[in-house]
């Protein structure tokens, strides 16, 4: 065994030094390389995860907003058509109202005119009767006078 050790130059001191060297290298690399790189990798993974989640949330929100907008648009167009049909109805109603009013007014005017004309006629008749009466009296007077 000892011969092997001497042929290969085995020496417990060198063995220990090499092991310690390796240990030091491990610690140094861990401190200067692995920890920062792994930390950065973790951070980036977190960031990407967050980004993906945010994007998903944003997608959902966009869908929501779109739905909302569609709803609002539908409502608005419904209302507009409602208003339009209402106003149409009302205008038709109003027109017919106006026509009936006008008809009624015309009728009343006609009626009153008729009445008036009737009245005038009657008056004229009455007046003419009186006149006739007077004229008859006068004629009778004249006849009587002549007989005398």
């Amino acid at each position: 065994m000892e011969e092997i050790a001497s042929v290969f130059g085995l020496n417990w001191k060198l063995l220990l030094i090499q092991a310690v060297n390796f240990g030091v290298l491990l610690l140094v690399l861990r401190y200067f390389l692995y920890t920062p790189v792994l930390k950065m990798l973790d951070e980036r993974r977190e960031k990407v995860e967050k980004g993906v989640k945010d994007a998903e949330a944003a997608g959902v929100r966009i869908q929501e907003i779109e739905d909302e907008r569609d709803g609002v648009l539908k409502e608005a167009s419904n209302e507009a058509s409602n208003i339009l049909s209402n106003s149409k109805e009302r205008s038709v109603e109003q027109a017919s109202q106006i026509t009936t009013d006008a008809n009624a007014q015309a009728e009343t005017i006609l009626e009153s005119a008729n009445l008036r004309s009737q009245e005038l006629k009657e008056q004229a008749l009455r007046e003419s009767k009186e006149e006739i009466g007077k004229a008859a009296i006068l004629a009778a007077e004249v006849i009587l006078r002549d007989k005398k």
Binding site: L25, V28, L29, Y31, F32, L33, T35, P36, V37
Partner: peptide, 9 residues
Amino acid sequence: LFVIAFFVG
């Protein structure tokens, strides 16, 4: 290795 690790890290 230390120098590389130092400058990369």
